[in-house]
Design a protein around this nucleic acid. Sequence first.
RNA 1: GUCCCGUUCGUCUAGAGGCCUAGGACACCGGGUUUUCAUCCCGGCAACAGGGGUUCGACUCCCCUACGGGAUGCCA
Length: 464
Amino acid sequence: MTKVITRFAPSPTGTLHIGGVRTALFNYVYAKQNDGLFLVRIEDTDKDRSTKEFEKNILDSLSSIGLSPDKEPINQSERNDIYVAAAEKIIASGKGYWCDCSKETLDEMRKDQEAAGKKPMYDGRSRNLGLERSENTVLRLATPEDGEIVVKDLIRGEVMFQNSELDDLILLRSDGTPTYHLCNVVDDYEQNVSTVIRGEDHLSNTPRQIHIQNALGYPSLEYAHLPLVLGPDKKRLSKRHAATSLEEYKAEGYLDSAILNTLGRLGWSKGDQEVFYMKDLIKNFNIHEVQKAGAIFDITKLDWLNSQHLSNLNLEDFKNHLIPFLEEISIDINDHFNTDALINAMKSSSNTLQGIATELRPYFLDVENYDQKAISKFIDDKGMQILNDLLDILSKLTQWDENNLDHALKSYQTENNYSVPQVNQPIRIALTGSTKSPSLGLTLYLVGQKNSLDRLTKLINSLS
RNA sequence: GUCCCGUUCGUCUAGAGGCCUAGGACACCGGGUUUUCAUCCCGGCAACAGGGGUUCGACUCCCCUACGGGAUGCCA
């Protein structure tokens, strides 16, 4: 049995797209579970749209999320000779021909065909002209006119295409550069790729590429065409719908493992299991089980999975993941006197690391804004009285710990016959600006005595 | 237009002819726990696109229609 080699072949015309990550993931997992190799190839034959910046973004993004290739990525732009040699081979074999149709001619032909209700395609008019290569000729593949091509797809089974539906595609442009189809086929062969796992949008390209393989005498490949990742309107996911770049999701505080989990679970499932780590995917993923229909990318599922992955992190790892997000808002985690207690108390306060970092602000920085609704609801004259009373009580407290604080609050509340929220909410507002926080004794402890007293004073002053 | 692929709850999916009173998860709604928020627990809502076959029996097989997507580039 031949070694399984898969490849992810992005063109560097944009940052790494979340759909691309999924394609890369499936390629990666399929390779790993078959003890094979995962390769990356940069398809930068479009000089106008490809940039080095995008290429770097894609490569960095892939390795940052753990989908590193097993060999150094190759660039098609540096392999021109190889493609030209392949083209020469096709010319020599008589399976290609030169065509001098101008773009205008082609456009006109297409228009006529469309008007006649036909599929627009090159009609092969130059095929038997015996044209020589010249400045404005392109090399076309002489595609068989009869018969059919059967694409054996791991996900879709056998898909049949009539050769009569296919036109003679361009292999070499008039400037002599090779086109996508040629490069793609040649590189898959040169890189010993065994299995092509790519988006469904390439399914109808496949018979064309098989013809190139045949013309070149290459062995056939295994294919798997993945359903597309869609936006809520069922069109392929784009910037219109949501963030599409991997880096944006990472910047929002989604864990790599949660992103991969979400993407892996999009179009594939295993029993009732929802949480998968890479090792689970490698163990359980089965390409034959991949769904055929496109799947809508649902951010709420990502949110939930992120919270699951976050809660599976031990304290140390959690902290390390969180630190960059705190730094982002100029918070140094070491400025707190008990980070472990703080983080334990706050780790489920949001689904994302960025969200958690934001929730952590009051434990490092002064409160700038108060929830006005909460103030009007909880702080009336009696609320002011309570704030003043507690400022007094708390400033006299010698043992500033959770238990003591809870006791102090409780006895004040019962002695004065107040309800619990009546006492606690005003303090919460003073400490955090809102009514959201861990249990109050713990919150007071985490904010610290001096800060707590200062904030009580500040709120009292601002309201009197 | 033509070719190709597809169609189960709002979303991701389970379902390989009787196990389906169509299961799970997310979301949503309700309840409980929590002094608040979040977590957590319990409960609820909610789908086989439509029509024909085949069969004793169809979500499952076949055909048609509808709808969606993709491809139809000297882009990849």
